[in-house]
């Protein structure tokens, strides 16, 4: 099986400071990779570099495109990369406000990606929008409401619907459950797990919440000061941490 995403020696510096250094991994179709670490460990920098929002200083990010097979994302032209960003890729932001258009209705938010790839039939677009709102448990009668009128959890679910409507193969998530209370988190995680399994998505999830990766991720990378200090199967890393920092991280989880 060819990997969906191959990352090789990815490095990003902010002047003398290291954002993330020499990160390499392969991601296979249907696999969910978690990236954990404390604030400032470089996990968001890594995600931005992978998703093409930041230009790394060194390294390769090779994506298995539908049309042309393996392509280095970093040497693609900007139109190609942006096209990828609204078809095969999806990016779920920590704050729903960053990923949504707050001034237009929920239906238009979901429909925007469809229209961006050329859908020009109002009836079809609306049907798909309503269908996707249903899948993320937003009632169909809220389709013409603006996201402003939604709760935090609903906004986050709307953002997920908006991202998944074009049937992407790779989803980047930056703290998808950050800032939500635990019961809402639980339902969102349940939903995400269902969608990932159902659609066979590959995903890279950045979080500092070990419970989230325990539930969602097949594999885990632990980052500290811009470097990957430990990587492996999620259960293995969490149950038998080898690196001192991972041990600290695992033992710091509050038990209720």
């Amino acid at each position: 099986m060819t990997p969906l995403l191959q990352v090789d020696g990815l490095t990003k510096r902010y002047g003398a400071r290291l954002g993330c250094g020499d990160v390499s991994f392969d991601l296979y179709p249907g696999e969910v990779m978690g990236i954990v670490g404390e604030s400032g460990s470089g996990k968001s920098t890594l995600l931005s570099c992978l998703a093409g929002h930041l230009a790394p200083d060194a390294g390769r990010v090779v994506f298995d495109t539908r049309a042309e097979g393996a392509r280095d994302v970093l040497t693609m032209s900007e139109p190609e990369r942006r096209m990828l960003g609204r078809t095969d890729w999806a990016f779920v932001h920590q704050h729903a406000r960053d990923g949504l258009r707050m001034g237009v209705s929920a239906g238009a938010n979901v429909g925007e990606r469809l229209m961006a790839v050329g859908a020009r039939h109002y009836g079809d677009i609306r049907e798909q929008a309503v269908d996707w709102l249903g899948r993320v448990e937003i009632p169909a009668d809220r389709v013409d409401d603006r996201p402003r009128a939604f709760s935090g959890g609903m906004q986050q679910r709307l953002q997920i619907a908006r991202n998944l409507v074009t049937g992407p193969r790779l989803v980047f998530m930056d703290e998808p459950t950050g800032g939500l209370d635990v019961s809402v988190q639980a339902r969102l995680l349940d939903l995400l797990r269902g969608l990932v399994r159902e659609m066979g998505l590959s995903a890279i999830i950045v979080t500092h919440d070990l419970a989230v990766v325990r539930l969602l991720a097949d594999r885990l990378m632990v980052m500290k000061d811009g470097r990957v200090v430990e990587a492996g199967l999620t259960d293995q890393v969490l149950d038998d941490p080898q690196h001192g920092y991972t041990q600290l991280l695992v033992s710091s989880v509050l038990l209720v």
Binding site: R82, R86, S105, G107, M115, A116, Y122, V143, D144
Partner: peptide
């Protein structure tokens, strides 16, 4: 520059929806 005009149709979509 990149001919990304999906957003223009979002406005027309909103018109029809409302």
């Amino acid at each position: 520059a990149l001919e990304e005009y999906g957003l223009m149709h979002v406005k027309l979509y909103e018109d029809i929806a409302h």
